[in-house]
Design a protein around this nucleic acid. Structure first.
Lengths: 184, 184
DNA sequence: ACTAGTTAGTTGACGCTTCAACTTCGGACA
DNA sequence: TGTCCGAAGTTGAAGCGTCAACTAACTAGT
């Protein structure tokens, strides 16, 4: 497998059995707390697949968007949320919540997007603290041009790899994860 | 729903029906290419859940690890990979591949970890280009101390929210996603 | 009205990631 | 042997995200 360039057989000094990750440490491990509910070998496999899968998908989508429109997936998501809102306008804090960004992060991102002319900010009428973020025509055009390529990527890297049923399960599972444990 | 602070009814000028994201644009949209296979409303819902779910989980795990051990999830994964290897040693490029990081990213991360005394780098015997990365005792200790808390977080934010069957499906699905479409 | 507490949003510094450029080494082939 | 190409790693700059600190405005209790 090309990996075993090390000829040292797993002899006495070779560890590897008692390494904690998310699995149980080998039999009588030292400093490890005892009450821990480690993952089974199978669960560990799924967990690792999760980490690699999400990383791969994120990567693929980001690259596609960056190449096609010089925007990131997060920026794309912001454009989408705005495009769907009543006057293509959403308050900063709502926008932040809807894409799961911190307010700080959204401020930075929106500032960059504003510099590019994709969105505009304007003070809220009814709430002196609020700021409304609006999608500009240029921003909408960009989204419009970018959407087909993006959907294509989502399909090839995700949807088309799965049966309808699997995708449905994935979706429901993700909804539960997004909600999180009882009151986050 | 607290969101509709805007009293303007969806009248003539109010858009929102023809906004492309991953869904189909409303009826006769303008500039949108015609051949696009948009996502159905249901698929879109799952896709959005995916984005929010993965974001939430990443966040929760990173916070837990950062609070407990001042390391990120990526750093934790590196510690795990090393701890499992024959001499707690892995070549940089293999390590990068195993956690899906670019070589550059791994170099930077490992440099930081080396400064903290968690890992060490040493030239490869057999290949003049290669660099071996080894987990130090201090690094292993950190992993050892951190693992229980981390597994706990993985359980509360993921495993315990799902039935065994759902988790299995999630895992298999993620394996397919990680592999990606025919030859990446 | 006054104060305290909360919510909305921004800012700047610092840390992590990406990207392109670079160095070094190994393998193939003449 | 010399040359060429690709693989392994590193580097520094620039972009993005996080964190803590800050301003400003709403809310509430007195």
């Amino acid at each position: 497998m090309t990996t075993t360039s090390d000829p040292t057989a797993p002899g006495p000094e070779a560890p590897g059995t008692d390494a904690p990750g998310t699995d149980a440490p080998g039999t009588a491990a030292p400093a490890v707390a005892e009450g821990t509910r480690w993952l089974t070998a199978e669960q560990q496999r799924w967990w690792r697949a999760y980490l690699l899968g999400t990383a791969a998908l994120q990567d693929a989508l980001n690259r596609q968007l960056d190449a096609d429109a010089d925007i990131s997936l997060s920026e794309y998501e912001i454009l989408v949320r705005l495009s769907e809102a009543p006057r293509r306008t959403v308050r900063m804090s709502e926008l932040a919540a809807s894409v799961m960004h911190s307010r700080s992060r959204l401020t930075h991102t929106v500032s960059r997007m504003e510099r590019r002319g994709l969105v505009e900010r304007r003070a809220c009428e009814d709430d002196g603290r609020g700021i409304n973020c609006t999608l500009t025509p240029a921003g909408f055009d960009l989204l419009d041009r970018t959407a087909p390529g993006h959907v294509g990527a989502v399909r090839t890297h995700l949807v088309d790899l799965l049966s309808d049923e699997d995708f449905r399960v994935l979706g429901r599972v993700m909804e539960r994860i997004a909600e999180g444990p009882r009151e986050d």
